[in-house]
Design a protein around this nucleic acid. Structure first.
Length: 483
RNA sequence: GCGCCCAUCGUCUAGCGGUCCAGGACGUCGCCCUUUCACGGCGAAAACAGGGGUUCGAGUCCCCUUGGGCGCGCCA
């Protein structure tokens, strides 16, 4: 079928893959999957000054992490410069473009004058029909599009609807620079055409460009692809997402311990919705994605909601799978490499055993590794301030009394431990919490952890008893002395 | 300045002329559950930017105002 959909994600490698770019990629990907089409990846590296290989690597790394795959080879725009030049020549030959010899200074003056007179800053078209005899010697010309000066250029946008631009507001844009390299406008149109792109899905900061590009398509006599300009993602204060808001590369979200699936889910709900629904599996996303349901208004980025959603995903991820994700992410997490170094078969088994209680309490992978700290701690533990306080306020004495009872447990299971501790508390006439908290302090060094009986079981008999002994006051005198 | 886009709780959003004294989610605040912290459950506060129309009837359609955003390069 020749009518099959071809979308593309076309970032310029001048920096990392940011959150807005990631969402644009996601929408392109979803649309392609939904329609059984393909998504292509094109690196717009025609700006030789600002494009870097590191940025290309970061973009590819980010897409890979988000599991947004593309079809075919990555297209590097700069490599197609010869084709772009040829296309510009073609327009020149057909009279749809012309050479312009205006200097940078003249153009700057033109813009300045226009601004002063309250007119839009545009090229005045003075070389449009100028006599070749007037060409100044030694000046390399640019090639400009001979754009229509009357009428209107209309975009039938899949998201924005019908948008009309009066042609008088659009000037004769540069297609080929004086050094013979193509501009973005030319390159995009030629590439999208040559690559057979049927749907252009991109940020709505390109909406005005869409009109100019439409004029270029028309000059070539090529069909214009369907366009869909999606709203931008704004910062929490409603202004454009910037470094000020901590506009980060997608890798930063990985380093903050977010799951790719959660980030995708959060991103898809920014500017797109299906009724009240908040959660979508990848399949459900593909199934229900519709360009017509994409909003026209920008959405603000809310880290708190992302975090909540990530917590949902962590809890919903099966333990083994979460363990795999964790291990794969460890190199990127603060403190992760240290954990990875200690993760032998035994530790891995302990972490896995503790996972149900751990993931319940963590909203990110960072919180997860923080929570599992007690498994990697070495004796004697250094309890934090609050834990020390509990121990000092009679906790240590209680542990001293409890220790012998735990030591003789025939089997080391959460149930057995719970029975002994509850019995101990009851017979001592104290609340369970008065025993559980000192125990927690001794075993984990903190006052918050998964259920204490599970901790006991995961840490193991020998290590648990030793940690308790480390903190317990065993001298009967000391117990008697405490009021 | 000119052009274009946008406008429902703090945030993401439902709503596509009557069933909306506006629903859900996040966040916030209570209460419950409870060995801690979470999770979970229950509940509360919280919005149709303003003004004109159209209509029997407007959050929903039109216009204006205001506010935000994007664009206006031999950057992409």
């Amino acid at each position: 079928m020749s009518s099959s959909v071809v979308t593309r994600f076309a970032p310029s490698p001048t920096g990392f893959l940011h959150i807005g770019g990631a969402r644009t990629a996601l929408f392109n990907w979803l649309y392609a999957k939904k329609t059984g089409g393909t998504m292509l990846l094109r690196i717009e590296d025609t700006d030789r000054e600002r494009s870097t290989d590191a940025a290309i690597a970061a973009i590819i790394d980010g897409l890979t992490w988000l599991r947004l795959d593309w079809d075919g080879e990555v297209v590097h725009q700069f490599a197609r410069a010869a084709r772009h030049r040829e296309a510009a020549e073609e327009l020149l030959a057909s009279g749809r473009a012309y050479r312009c010899y205006a200097s940078q200074e003249e153009l700057a003056e033109m813009r300045e004058a226009a601004r002063r007179e309250g007119r839009p800053p545009r090229y005045d078209g003075s070389w449009r029909d100028r006599d070749p005899a007037e060409v100044p010697p030694g000046v390399a010309p640019v090639i400009r599009l001979r754009a229509p000066q009357e009428g209107e250029t209309i975009i039938d946008d899949a998201v924005q609807g019908r948008v009309v631009f009066p042609n008088k507001d659009l000037d004769d844009l540069v297609l080929l620079r004086s050094d013979g390299t193509p501009t973005y406008m030319l390159a995009v149109v030629v590439d999208d055409h040559d690559m057979g792109i049927t749907q252009i899905i991109r940020g709505d900061d390109h909406l005005t460009n869409a009109a100019r590009q439409t004029q270029i398509y028309n000059a070539f006599g090529w069909p214009v692809p369907t366009m869909a300009h999606i709203p931008l993602i704004h910062g929490p204060d409603g202004s454009k997402l910037s470094k000020r808001h901590g506009a980060l590369g997608i890798d930063a979200y990985r380093a903050m311990g977010y799951l790719p699936a959660a980030l995708r889910n959060y991103l898809v709900r920014l500017g797109w919705s299906q009724g009240d629904r908040e959660f979508f599996s990848t399949e459900e996303m593909i199934e229900s994605f519709e360009l017509s349901q994409v909003h026209r208004s920008p959405a603000r980025f809310d880290l708190a909601k992302l975090e909540n959603m990530n917590g949902h995903y962590m809890r919903a991820t099966p333990n083994r799978e979460l363990m795999e994700i964790l291990e794969a992410t460890l190199p990127y997490l603060p403190g992760g490499p240290e954990i990875a170094a200690k993760l032998d078969a035994q530790k891995r088994a302990q972490v896995l055993a503790a996972m149900p209680g751990l993931k319940e309490r963590a909203k990110t992978l960072i919180e997860l590794i923080d929570g599992m700290g007690f498994l990697f701690a070495e004796r004697p533990l250094a309890p934090d301030e609050k834990a020390r306080a509990i121990l000092a306020q009679g906790g240590a004495a209680i542990l001293g009394a409890l220790l012998p009872k735990l030591a003789v447990l025939p089997e080391w299971t959460p149930e057995a431990a719970e029975a002994v501790v509850r019995d101990f508390a009851e017979k001592s006439g104290i609340k369970l919490g008065q025993v559980a908290q000192p125990l927690r302090a001794a075993l984990t060094g903190r006052l918050t952890s998964p259920g204490i009986f599970d901790v006991l079981a995961v840490v193991g008999r020998e290590e648990s008893l030793a940690r308790i002994a480390d903190q317990a006051e065993t001298a009967p005198a000391a117990v008697a002395a405490s009021p």
